[in-house]
Design a binder for these strands. Structure first.
Lengths: 357, 357
DNA sequence: AGGGTGGCCTTGATCGATCCAATGACACCA
DNA sequence: TGGTGTCATTGGATCGATCAAGGCCACCCT
């Protein structure tokens, strides 16, 4: 990274530092009660007589008291923090989805009395970040987001008995013959999403609907693909020759769609991502075909791009707000009853219909 | 928000809870030294004799010890956390810029030994989030990002003597006749960015370059606009009739560009945002004009959209990685020497040239 | 009257690290 | 032998909250 050579101004003195904030003892003295009573006024108000409570609350208000987090954390062995690792800032729609999720998570956590602590993955070992936070008891739990193909985090956290909820189903554990996941998870039913998209296109009169997805070793990709085949076969339509599996780049989507248009001549495309769908739009542009009017296209993720590209890209939208709600509620359950793992939760995406279909 | 009706599985028992992590005393006992010596081994290793140090370090490694964050925080009155508020998850390029910044900030903070705590703004009072974290000493400092037009956060934090660094210059304080800012800040020189963009277009042979920006009450918008006028006037070119100030939406950009094409007949557009630039692309599409070949377009923010829209949107790119570096370093300075406010830092953006110019 | 009961509040101990002042070990020198 | 300075190490106090007991008092019951 090349450092930008900055233009700087001049330094100058600053106003004095803040006084130390009031403590429980300060409030207690002012209200004429003991520390414990103040503590109860905050954590178990119904243990106090109404008049005492009022007196304490007034003292709290006057002094602007708020419990010291560190002290409380030490005593209660709790931090009210949820740790979440964010990957390197690669550009891409997956990243945008994560950002949208983070927003929802922060919002939902706040309502549950938690804050979100972000940490970066060390370049090397992916678990060092988790390990450090865990051993220093800096967070109460984790939200793990990258559970695709055999990533080590989930297994490692399970082994450490660390409380965490996964956004993403435990693919390995769900295979027949394997044990159930030993951790709670929330996921979006990708197959249902692509099925929704395909059904939408079928309704519009299309019957030659192509699929452009990811390589076969992507569990998520194959899951999404299965929704397309299910919808097609459900109508008695063949899928042979209509599918392509490529890298998740615009160029790949462009090539794949060009090839498919030349061979199977589909009138519509369902894609595993908005990125691939953008590739299709490129191809249509090259050939003077109008998206929506001549050839329909549906993407996946409802990214910013899908919303602004002319004429608007129809896309499967993950209900990330709902995911966050279920993640937090699973987290609360986990922390309240550590002995029981809540069941996995599968949510259904929706379809944002735009000009491209 | 409509709750998605989830499909759930079955609950089942979970593995036993983790044992309590080792403490300083455990390490001390195992290494045959006192607690303080272990503490020194961690915080001031050079105070120990090499052989003692080695013994302690081995004990630390064997037990997998890591200092309890809460205890350390309580004693040192520090949390190693940087608080940052994120706004509601509105969709837009501004949001995407912030997300890119958050990534960089998390990364840079990690290197400085800090974590990033995200919190959501309460719907009502914008300072309650700050206030709560501050009074409970949950964070060491804040990064304030939304410093545009007289927002109350900066002034409020200053008054509270809260340590914070702003991403965004203190517009009010920089006006002549007003005091200097009393807090450190880092910003990107928007005018330099649009000047860069305009100069780029001038080099390409354009001389009728239009501006589409935000309404006049936007400080950032006027700043970016000034770069365009500066570049134009520098070449002795007039700007009258070539500018339009609208809302930051695609529709506005579309209308404004359509209007300008009909009146001033520019051969190129410089826009205050990628969103507006997308509006221009829409207009060009409507009229069968090819971006880049027939009419050049430059956006601002180098968003995801700019990168994927055909044929690629040339855009001013903010050096957010550098911003994060300077923000964190200002933060470190602030926490190390609270009595001195470092000077403001202004960084220069770059231009990501793509097919649209 | 004595003892039990429950409501309300207080006291002392504790969480696990760091700060502080003091002690021990050791070499060196008078 | 005793003094002195340096340096590693020690024990105790502390940060500010909560937990676990226990005290006080009014009230009720037999």
């Amino acid at each position: 990274m090349s450092r930008n050579e900055p233009v700087v101004g001049r330094a100058y003195p600053r106003l004095p530092m803040p006084v130390t904030p009031p403590t429980l003892a300060d409030v207690a003295e002012r209200a004429g009660v003991s520390r414990q009573t103040v503590s109860n006024a905050i954590n178990n108000p119904d243990l106090l007589r109404p008049d005492t409570l009022a007196r304490v609350q007034e003292a709290i208000a006057v002094l602007g008291y708020s419990p010291n987090r560190a002290a409380r954390n030490l005593r209660t062995r709790t931090s009210q923090l949820i740790g979440m690792r964010i990957g390197p800032a690669q550009e891409g729609t997956a990243n945008a989805t994560m950002d949208r999720f983070v927003h929802s998570l922060v919002e939902t956590s706040r309502e549950a009395g938690y804050h979100v602590l972000l940490f970066a993955g060390d370049g090397g070992d992916p678990v060092v970040g988790y390990d450090a936070l865990l051993r220093s008891t800096a967070v109460d739990a984790f939200v793990v987001t990258d559970t695709y193909l055999g990533n080590p985090q989930a297994a490692w956290l399970e082994e450490r008995r660390a409380p965490f909820v996964a956004f993403g189903r435990p693919w390995d554990a769900l295979r027949p013959g394997t044990d159930q996941a030993r951790h709670p998870w929330v996921d979006v039913d990708g197959a249902a999403g692509t099925e929704l998209a395909t059904a939408h296109l079928l309704e519009k009169g299309h019957d030659r609907i192509a699929w452009i997805g990811w390589r076969k070793d992507s569990r998520i990709g194959e899951d999404r693909r299965s929704g397309w085949t299910r919808a097609m076969h459900g109508r008695g339509l063949a899928t042979t020759g209509l599918a392509s599996r490529v890298e998740d780049t615009i160029a790949s989507g462009r090539e794949a769609s060009a090839h498919l248009l030349g061979s199977a001549r589909p009138s519509a495309f369902v894609c595993a991502s908005d990125t691939l769908a953008m590739g299709v739009l490129h191809t249509l542009g090259d050939r003077g075909l109008r998206p929506g009017a001549d050839v329909a296209v549906v993407g996946f993720d409802d990214s910013q791009v899908a919303q602004v590209v002319p004429p608007g890209l129809t896309s499967v939208r993950q209900p990330l707000e709902d995911v966050a709600v279920h993640v937090v509620s699973a987290l609360e359950g986990l922390l309240a009853h550590p002995a029981v793992v809540g069941p996995g939760v599968m949510l259904t995406p929706t379809l944002a219909v735009r000009g491209s279909s």
